[in-house]
Design a protein around this nucleic acid. Structure first.
Lengths: 158, 158
DNA sequence: TTGTAATTGACAACATGTTGTCAATATGAG
DNA sequence: CTCATATTGACAACATGTTGTCAATTACAA
């Protein structure tokens, strides 16, 4: 039944919009937005400091989109660049002291917020939803960037 | 477990991005984008012609975002405005002949695409995912626009 | 009827994503 | 070592979403 998949697609668009709006509300008081918060998180969560292009790949966004946000965060003093011994241009993004403080505050706000969102929903249903969304996304990514060993699936890619 | 909900949120962001990219690929050959396609669909699917502000509410987007896309589509001749007997300013958006043709072509491309996406995924799992996403979205919307009779739930809203 | 509130479209400013292009900098085949 | 290729950051153009403001229009209560 493609009707249910179509419904899932539309619901994904809507939830995405509501999540962005809710995230903005959640961290606006500390000078953040959903996008900046996510970038701070991607920098903080990396096991080692990474260049911006790496962070973008981890986030599934374009290099340039993340670069601009990182540059804004750097201009605001939340992110700093450390020298990269392996590459003269690709500096490593790290959180500054104030960046860590702001991110910690965002995380403190996030915890009860996410708990409230999850309350009343079966954990097994959430896991199922994650699994379905991931399956669909991986199918889309496979169609977008066909590798040699699966290219026979494609019809034509100008 | 808030971990699974956090994973669901991140996965929603990623799937949203992949869906937009895939939709763009799907209809770029007929001069559409994901956003324009969705607006054409919202106009076509309405039981009666509606003003732009109504369409925007149906889509869950801001009035102005949809207005700009509709104006672009009107400039391209895919959408026309019919007089509204109940409101002198708020003209009713309708698909032109070429708009119908383009939309039909988009739908023809969408069908096998959605079938491919759904293939291999349990219908019951897709339904569960839709239900979870909808629950989360409704919770976010309730928190964003509290009505009188549920305002006691809110902690504080500056 | 009158005046207030809600709706609507127009316009502007801005945030966040995309793609494309360019030069600088690794990386690796030969 | 040398040259083709890939990666990276900078810059620009653009698509699509947001919010805010304004005037025109409609709806409704007094």
């Amino acid at each position: 039944m493609t009707l249910h998949m179509t419904t899932l697609i539309i619901e994904t668009f809507r939830l995405n919009g509501e999540l962005l709006a809710a995230g903005d509300r959640l961290v606006s008081a500390i000078g953040l937005t959903s996008a900046r918060w996510q970038v701070l998180g991607a920098i903080e969560m990396a096991p080692v400091p990474l260049p911006v292009a790496h962070i973008a790949r981890n986030m599934g966004l374009s290099r340039q989109a993340v670069q601009r946000v990182v540059n804004t965060l750097a201009a605001e003093g939340l992110v700093a660049f450390a020298d990269n011994p392996h590459h003269a241009r690709a500096k490593l993004a790290v959180l500054s002291t104030s960046g860590k403080r702001v991110f910690d505050e965002a995380m403190a706000r996030q915890l009860p917020w996410v708990e409230g969102l999850a309350k009343g929903i079966d954990v097994s249903d959430i896991k199922t939803a994650v699994s379905v969304l991931r399956s669909v996304r991986e199918k889309l990514q496979a169609a977008a960037k066909p590798r040699e060993d699966q290219r026979y699936v494609m019809e034509e890619h100008a």
